[in-house]
C-alpha cells in the first residue's frame, strides 16, 4: 500500500464503504422503478385460498411479500454480481487499498444495500396495498400485527443470502472466467445429482421455523462472503 498519509485498515475500510455506498446508489432507483412497475401491473404476489363447511364458504385473497421479495432477490443477486466485476473493482483504486479490504468493503456494502433494499421492498408492499385499498375500495383484513419485525429480519437475511451467492459467482468470474462457469456447472450438476431432489434441498434449507431459517441464512452468507474474500485474496496479479 503506497500513500503519503498513514491510514489504518479500518479507516480505509470505512472510507471505501462510504464511497461505494454513494457510488452505486442509483441502483436503488432501478429497484424502486421495477417494484413500482410490477405493482402497477398487479403482480403483487397475492395468492388465495378457499374452503369452508356446510353453509359457509370462505375465500381469502392474500397480499403477501412474495413478489417484492423475488424481485429484490434478483436485484440483489445482479447487484452483488456486478459489484465483484472487474470494471467495478478498478474503481477501488480511487482509494489506496489492498484486496482483502476491497472485498470486505464490498461485502459490507452489499449487506448495507440488502438492508436498504429489504426496507424498500417492504415499503413497496405497503404502498401498493394502500393503493389497492384506495382505488378498488376492497375491505382489507389483517392479523394483530400489520408489520412483523421477525418477517423483516427473515426477508433481509434471505436477500442477503441470495446477494452473497451473487457475490460468490461474481468473485469466481473475477478469479477466472472458466472457474466461474465451472462453479455454475458444478452447482447445477450437484443439485441434479442429489438423491433428495431439488424440492427436498429447498425444503431442507428453508424449513424449521423463523429462528433456524435466520441462523442458516446468516451463517450461509458469512461463509459465502468469507469464501469469496479468501478466493480473491489468492488472485495476486491483475492482468490487463
Amino acid at each position: 500500500m503506497m500513500s503519503l498519509n498513514s491510514l489504518t485498515t479500518s479507516q480505509v475500510l470505512w472510507k471505501q464503504v462510504k464511497w461505494k455506498c454513494k457510488a452505486f446508489s442509483q441502483s436503488f432507483i432501478t429497484l424502486i422503478g421495477i417494484l413500482i412497475v410490477i405493482q402497477l401491473l398487479g403482480w403483487n404476489g397475492s395468492g388465495s385460498s378457499g374452503g369452508g363447511s356446510n353453509q359457509f364458504s370462505v375465500y381469502i385473497h392474500f397480499y403477501s411479500l412474495d413478489m417484492t421479495f423475488i424481485i429484490t432477490c434478483i436485484w440483489a443477486f445482479i447487484q452483488s454480481l456486478l459489484m465483484q466485476g472487474r470494471i467495478q473493482q478498478q474503481d477501488d483504486y480511487s482509494i489506496v487499498t489492498n484486496r482483502i479490504v476491497c472485498n470486505v468493503s464490498n461485502s459490507i456494502v452489499v449487506t448495507i444495500y440488502c438492508f436498504i433494499a429489504t426496507l424498500i421492498a417492504i415499503a413497496s408492499f405497503y404502498i401498493s396495498v394502500l393503493f389497492y385499498r384506495l382505488f378498488s375500495g376492497i375491505d382489507l383484513i389483517r392479523n394483530e400485527l400489520l408489520f412483523n419485525p421477525v418477517e423483516v429480519i427473515v426477508t433481509f437475511l434471505l436477500i442477503l443470502l441470495v446477494a452473497a451467492s451473487g457475490f460468490f459467482i461474481g468473485s469466481a468470474f473475477h478469479f477466472s472466467k472458466m472457474f466461474g462457469i465451472g462453479v455454475i456447472v458444478l452447482f447445477v450438476v450437484l443439485l441434479n445429482l442429489t438423491p433428495l431432489g431439488i424440492a427436498n434441498v429447498i425444503k431442507f434449507l428453508f424449513n424449521g421455523g423463523d429462528l433456524l431459517l435466520m441462523l442458516k441464512a446468516l451463517v450461509g452468507s458469512i461463509l459465502i462472503f468469507g469464501l469469496s474474500t479468501l478466493m480473491l485474496n489468492r488472485n495476486e496479479v491483475t492482468r490487463r
Partner: peptide, 20 residues
Amino acid sequence: NQEFTFYEIYPGMQMLDQIN
C-alpha cells in the same frame, strides 16, 4: 348460505409457509 371474501394483508412470505 354465507360466502365470505376477504382480502388479507399478510406481512410475510406465503411461499415460506408452503415450504414449511
